[in-house]
Amino acid sequence: MHWQLEIVFFIVLITTAFIALDVKNLLVAVVTLSVFSFISALLYIVMGAVDVGFTEAVVGGGVSGILFIVLIFKTSRRSSD
């Protein structure tokens, strides 16, 4: 139905997924993962599953990002090379 919109969303989705995998800074990776989650929520809503998209936006974009940030600040990166 909205196939042009879906193509744009898929391109942004794959781009954010690769950025989240490749980036060195973990905080940037968490923010990009939240963007990934939000774009996938938009995809669910475009496809007609409003409830699933709502859950994905709330949980993936809100709470899991907060928990990841807390875990990043709790741990430390020790790279001795």
Binding site: V50, D51, F54, T55, V58, V59, G62, V63, I66
Partner: peptide, 17 residues
């Protein structure tokens, strides 16, 4: 309407957090 207990509870928790 879309939504319910789980989504609303998660948003309440997000406001507190």
């Amino acid at each position: 309407s879309p939504g319910g207990g789980f989504q609303g509870g998660t948003m309440l928790a997000a406001a507190v957090l």
